[in-house]
């Protein structure tokens, strides 16, 4: 059989999921001794192709099947049905090989050795992943510089702040040059500066090293600043796959203007905005994302005495909610 001589290796997706599903059987206690079996479809018919070098936002409400699918991509859970390849490997069958090609960071749970200095965790990973010495030294040097870890290397992990620990975890996940990096809430609980450092680092990692990044987050800012492509998972399947802006436009999520007035008044009536909530002198107004906020504020200030204003973007939960109700 003659095959095309020039298969485009690069165009082959690094994550390929076809009709992927995961069904759990739950045993629910319904009485003193009775147990009821129920099946839950955590993931159903999920299709996803991620090209090498992409920085993908992987979002969805809690319990939508995000973490179940990530666990399948990382070789932790076995799919109930469908086909899955990551870096050309079958995650469960090739668990050890796959582990070398991927890095995983769970925002809430560190994989570093709690009581030992950061340096020791890195040294262990060096051996565990059998990274060649020269390669390891170069990677460590680069990561320490980018993540500003130098002063922390000899500190026991338990003494690090949340942000410092996250930087340590990021470095730990990347010392073996993984092709894919999975991040679960990497900025949760971090202060503004730490968030900025992490985001900048991820953008550079993706740009300079070509590392494919799958980012799960509740922070819309993370997605906005980093991801061109967004995949929304809901009810166990892909509900949206495309650009973030297109998603925004499609669901037309409103922004919210919060105004603090000098005294309580009935609902403010201004064109182009609607009051959604009143609490004493404070009122919440919804207005279209593309409308001019400054004009709106000026409009209100003309008629009422304003003490303070703030504008809140629609958060990811809201965007996704609108995707279904809107």
């Amino acid at each position: 059989m003659i095959r095309p001589s020039q298969p485009t290796a690069v165009s082959r997706p690094i994550i390929e999921a076809e009709h992927l599903s995961k069904t759990y059987t739950l045993h629910k206690k319904t009485g003193r001794l009775k147990r009821e079996r129920t099946t839950v479809e955590a993931v159903r018919d999920l299709n996803l192709a991620v090209a090498e070098g992409e920085l993908l936002g992987y979002i969805g409400p809690n319990g939508a099947g995000k973490s179940t699918s990530i666990k399948m991509f990382t070789g932790i859970l076995s799919p109930s049905a469908g086909r899955l390849r990551v870096a050309g490997l079958e995650p469960i069958r090739d668990r050890k090989q796959l582990a070398r090609r991927i890095g995983v960071v769970f925002g809430q749970r560190t994989t570093l050795w709690w009581d030992l200095p950061l340096r020791d965790s890195f040294a262990l990973l060096h051996r565990m992943y059998a990274v060649p010495d020269a390669r390891f030294a170069a990677n460590l040097k680069r990561l320490v510089a980018l993540l500003e870890l130098e002063p922390l290397l000899d500190t026991p992990v338990r003494q690090l702040s949340l942000g410092q620990r996250m930087r340590g975890d990021l470095a730990a996940a990347l010392l073996h040059d993984p092709a894919v990096l999975y991040l679960d809430e990497p900025t949760i609980g971090l202060d503004v500066t730490s968030k900025a450092v992490v985001r900048e680092f991820l953008a550079e990692l993706n740009r300079e090293q070509g590392t494919t990044i799958v980012l799960t987050t509740h922070d819309l800012d993370d997605i906005e600043r980093l991801c061109r492509r967004v995949v929304v998972v809901d009810h166990g399947t892909v509900a949206y796959d495309g650009e973030l802006n297109a998603l925004r436009a499609r669901v037309a999520a409103d922004r919210t203007l919060v105004v603090d007035l000098a005294e309580p008044v009935p609902a403010i009536a201004v064109p182009g905005a609607a009051v959604t909530r009143i609490d004493g002198p404070r009122q919440w107004l919804a207005f279209p994302a593309e409308a001019n906020a400054a004009a709106l504020v000026a409009d209100i200030a003309e008629r009422y005495e304003l003490l303070d204003v703030s504008i809140r973007d629609a958060d990811i939960e809201e965007v996704i909610r609108n995707l279904y109700t809107g």
Partner: peptide
């Protein structure tokens, strides 16, 4: 012969 995409192998590794 399976085609080896660029991500298949970044460096030689031995399993501990």
């Amino acid at each position: 012969q399976p085609v080896e995409p660029s991500f298949e192998r970044r460096f030689e590794q031995r399993t501990p």
